[in-house]
Amino acid sequence: MKQFPILLKREFWENRNTFVVLPCVTAGFMILLMIGVYLAVDIVGIKANIQIGGDEQHQEMSSDKTRVNEAFGYMFSRLASLPPEAREHTIYQILNGLAGPLLVILWAVVLFYLIGSLYEDRKDRSILFWKSMPVSDTSTVLSKLVSALIVVPAVYLVCVLFIQLVFLIVSSLAAFSQEASIWEVLWEPSNLLSRWFTLIAHLLFQVIWSLPLYGWVILVSAWASSVPLAWIIGAPIVFAVLERFISGDTRVSGWFTDHISPVAFAQDQELYLADLLPKLMSIDTLAGLLVGLSFVAVAVWLRSKGDEI
């Protein structure tokens, strides 16, 4: 266990680009985009209809050179005029929209990282160096899983929180001269802390729920002697077809498919912790945990057996 921090660092060194540079660049890009939209709004003025929230009401604002304050003042006052629930919903959608791209990238980064995690060093033969060190195969595999499922999501999460915060700050500045209270219109309905807490809970739940997927990926990564991605996708498809053919139903493959889908941030518009807990406590989740951990155990065993390809 004393070795574990350096093992995580090792993963970070190897994957600095996708673990840190990519989310930071994405966050930076989104912030620029946000500011760009604000500026564009300023320059073009608001000739178009501005629609906020689920409200169907349209309003026209025509001015050749509307100042940014006015444009946002308009949006802000529209937001302020919404009933509290609709306001909350609108802000939630905006915050969610800001988080979306990073969370999708996170999902892809984690999967592609895991696909290569126990494969690349066998391919380039550097496994012979890693295995010359007194590090157990269990520690090695766990360090990759912890990186993929805890460390990397944490980094992306920080970026998500950062752009959400920047959004609220920039909007507050833009709406500074407005009459309505910035706190009441923007900050309070955003429920920032509870949303962040929920997002963290979702990501953790996602880890447990999708452990069969992650376990399967790392197993194939430890085993495949070429194109692990093909095995990761191909084998389950073949299995599903066989299952259908032999038993006539798709119980097992259906269960697996259910555990692959990224439930945490896509399925429902607004998930609250109260909805998560019963799902977390279900037999289904427990079964997923067991299947996932079995895959991981097999990956450790394969890692201990194998060397270079």
């Binding site: 060194w13 190897e14 060093d121 550097s126 012979l128 160096f129 890693w130 010359s132």
Partner: peptide, 14 residues
């Protein structure tokens, strides 16, 4: 400890 062949140090490692 062992050196298993030439050039098995990972190329990305500083």
């Amino acid at each position: 400890c062992f050196i298993a062949d030439v050039g098995v140090l990972p190329r990305w490692l500083k």
